[in-house]
């Protein structure tokens, strides 16, 4: 079975629990961490590739621990024609994937740091951030 990419989101109350360790040890899953980020409010986002016989049980365990689990089926892209480089997304993006290049103040988008949380999609006033399936 080819590895499936999933996005995990966890709140501050569980970000310091050894959930990932238990997932690997108790469910015998093979894991590749694609991206991971914990913001200053201690909310975490992780993109994983996960394989193993106990895949479904593993996901069930994560959900029981209060982790939101979603399949990663899309990506977020920037419509370069539409982006005005206003900067309104830069304090909203949790990973710094959208950031201001000072002192020129152009806004750059680093797709590799994007964890597809989609916060920018609604925060961008001119709707320049788009979800691609």
């Amino acid at each position: 079975m080819s590895p499936r990419k999933i996005v995990l989101r966890f709140g501050p109350e569980i970000s310091d629990k050894p959930i990932i360790y238990r997932l690997v040890k108790d469910y015998d899953l093979v894991m590749n961490i694609v991206k991971a980020n914990v913001n200053p409010q201690k909310e975490g986002i992780m993109v994983l590739e996960l394989t193993g016989d106990n895949y479904e049980q593993g996901l069930k365990y994560l959900r029981e621990q209060g982790v939101t689990v979603q399949a990663l089926t899309h990506e977020v892209v920037r419509n370069e024609q539409r982006c005005t480089h206003c900067g309104a997304c830069t304090a909203i993006c949790p990973t710094g994937a959208l950031y201001l290049d000072r002192p020129g103040m152009e806004v750059h988008f680093d797709g590799d740091s994007c964890v597809i949380c989609q916060l920018c999609v609604k925060a961008c006033p001119v709707r320049a951030m788009e979800v691609k399936l």
């Binding site: 480089h85 206003c86 900067g87 304090a91």
Partner: peptide, 23 residues
């Protein structure tokens, strides 16, 4: 503001513009 951080009530706060400086 343009440096990216200000201090408000003793706390460091990240800043962001809504008005496009490049434009």
């Amino acid at each position: 503001l343009k440096s990216g951080r200000i201090v408000v009530q003793g706390k460091e706060v990240p800043t962001a513009p809504l008005s496009s400086y490049p434009r």
